[in-house]
Design a protein around this nucleic acid. Structure first.
Lengths: 228, 228
DNA sequence: ATAACGCGTAGCGATAGTGTCAAGATCGGC
DNA sequence: GCCGATCTTGACACTATCGCTACGCGTTAT
């Protein structure tokens, strides 16, 4: 199987060099010169890996990452000229998997690509559609199919994010800390009231009896669990 | 759930600093000063993440990585003073997940730890399950699978904590002191009534005949033992 | 034999954790 | 610049869990 890489950079000569180097290693390469194009390209042809240069003309790097992370878990390797530690932390916490500072050796980047894709290979999730009680949830399409007669269900971005984490770990307990960190960021690890708020909303929308949930369960003092 | 990190470095003051910094973020920290110790420590108490400094006194860094990769897919973050590209490629291709060059900011390392564990949380499906009599206990998913017909079993956080320590030492005696210290803290080392209390609850929930336990055994005057 | 000790069991108030409601703050589209 | 949707933030009652005390019983030591 061929690995498809989306390279995002605003300098044409770097795009050219990357394309040549990656093609030579038998990767399939798509390119984009700005954040908007990158997001559209990723949506049209979901890549297996994104190499993202910061300092794009149209968008903040962290926003591009968040735009991708809203609907996909594709690995993201960030390139940047900035050595500032705060930039790295921001990008990594936004959802990037690796951060490489320029100038970097081509062989190092290739090694990091191998490292990320190696772990990817064992993670073939491929469960984008899950049944939550009577509803059919499609994680990749972001749709909730109601049973005949029931009203349509719409979820907000935050609700999707939270639900996705739970649904990707069916039957398993997900700690409050991990949920808060993944949805709101590392500095919100103790704001459990957010979880209570949004879990209640999810239950109101997806559970037959929100007061006695059967699939979105609370484990007091520990976290939450999706029970298929 | 607490993330356990194994830090491997030959400089004591770095070990100390790492331990303090990571503990402050609520990670559980084990340390090792050389490659051999690290491999043994990882085998005895499998960590959720390894932070590995290259340039150890007894082994090549790549050999330590390969020694771990032989039997575990635990994420490995490599620290190194070398900026040589070839070193990075060697470490990454040996199986490391990330490579950070010294000097590095503490916050950057913490962000990379978060990035690696975040991905880990959604991918690790190799869950260690233990059979306690008729029940199947999954420590990472925090589930107790009852045999057909039996009622579901729910454990409280304290019960899980206590059970986890016993199950991680199958067949071995765990002293009352160690149990009390790990679950309730160092100042509770003599409050053996807590142990009696919670061991009784565990037996009530997991043993067929709580009065005559077959797996959660008492060693009078010493401690408790989980008998598989 | 009897006292001392350790263990299992029961019960109780205090409290941390949770569900819920409600209102302010922010954002984006028309 | 207004309006609706979404995200924050605060407050409060309720419940399960926890920390703790007390008691009965078997075993061991004196």
């Amino acid at each position: 199987m061929v690995t498809r890489i989306l390279v995002v950079d605003d300098e044409p000569q770097i795009l050219r060099a990357m394309r040549i180097n990656l093609r030579a290693r038998d990767y399939e390469v798509d390119v984009a010169a700005d954040g908007g194009t990158a997001l559209r390209a990723a949506a049209a042809k979901p890549p297996d890996l994104v190499v993202l240069d910061l300092g794009l003309p149209d968008m903040e790097g962290a926003d591009v990452i968040r735009g991708l992370r809203g609907w996909t878990t594709v690995p993201i390797i960030v390139l940047s000229g900035r050595v500032d530690s705060a930039d790295k932390v921001a990008a990594l916490d936004a959802g990037a998997d690796d951060y490489v500072t320029k100038p970097f050796g081509v062989d190092e980047l290739l090694a990091r690509i191998r490292a990320v894709t190696r772990r990817m290979g064992t993670t073939s999730d491929a469960t984008p559609v899950v049944k939550v009680g009577p509803y059919t949830v499609d994680l990749s399409a972001r749709t909730v199919e109601p049973p005949d007669g029931n009203a349509e269900v719409r979820l907000t971005p935050t609700e999707w994010h939270l639900l996705e984490i739970l649904l990707r770990n069916p039957g398993k307990l997900v700690s409050q800390r991990q949920l808060l960190q993944d949805v709101w960021g590392p500095q919100y690890q103790t704001e459990t009231n957010y979880l209570r708020q949004y879990m209640a909303q999810l239950r109101r929308k997806l559970e037959a009896d929100p007061g006695h949930p059967r699939h979105l369960l609370t484990e007091p003092g520990m976290g939450y669990r999706f029970q298929p």
